[in-house]
């Protein structure tokens, strides 16, 4: 069993872990059973806000517990929406569907044929303009919500404890 220190988790998150270490100590099974909590601690230390991270969604998006309920928050602190809503509706978006726009990213011939009505939708943080997702879909395709995490099942059933934003609930009820 590989017991990863928080420093090594930090190195993994930063993409700085050497391949030998990654291959020999991080990739093989069994994994460190506390990886989730260690990762959460490292990520929580890095953000400028105190509300607890409940689920990391991607490099810059988190589900966070707040006094007003669970929200999707960007790393820079922008609350996009309630956790039950699709955070893409709160992003800034750029749609590419023409040759000139595709050819800022790919050489001629190596991108979508514009006759095929296909789009690259780039989703940006409305505050810091980090790119948080890219969809490649035909014109008219609905905007899918990528993930609905079942947060309480995870913490209560799989981790055996309340979610960090509900830790005081039992005591309060008592």
């Amino acid at each position: 069993m590989t017991d990863l220190s928080n420093d090594r988790v930090r190195s993994l998150i930063d993409g700085e872990m050497a391949w030998d270490e990654l291959r020999n100590e991080v990739l093989p099974d069994p994994k460190d059973p506390n990886r989730f909590e260690k990762t959460r601690e490292v990520l929580q230390d890095r953000v400028d806000w105190d509300d607890p991270i409940l689920v990391p969604l991607n490099d810059h998006l988190y589900v966070v517990g707040t006094d007003e309920g669970r929200v999707v928050r960007t790393e820079c602190g922008e609350d996009l929406c309630d956790v039950d809503e699709n955070w893409k509706r709160s992003c800034r978006i750029r749609v590419r569907d023409e040759d000139e726009e595709f050819e800022e990213l790919y050489p001629k011939y190596m991108h979508v044929d514009p006759d095929w009505a296909f789009e690259l939708r780039e989703w940006y943080c409305p505050e810091c303009y980090k790119l948080v997702d890219v969809d490649a879909v035909p014109v008219g395709y609905p905007v899918i919500k990528p993930f609905d995490p079942d947060i309480d099942t995870f913490y209560e059933e799989w981790q055996g404890r309340p979610a960090p934003d509900r830790e005081g609930d039992d005591a309060a009820a008592d």
Partner: peptide
């Protein structure tokens, strides 16, 4: 072929199409 099948993740882009 003439469109992408899928995309990248977390802001990553799809690979190039073929020709």
């Amino acid at each position: 072929d003439v469109t992408w099948c899928s995309s990248g993740m977390s802001g990553g882009y799809p690979h190039s199409t073929s020709y």
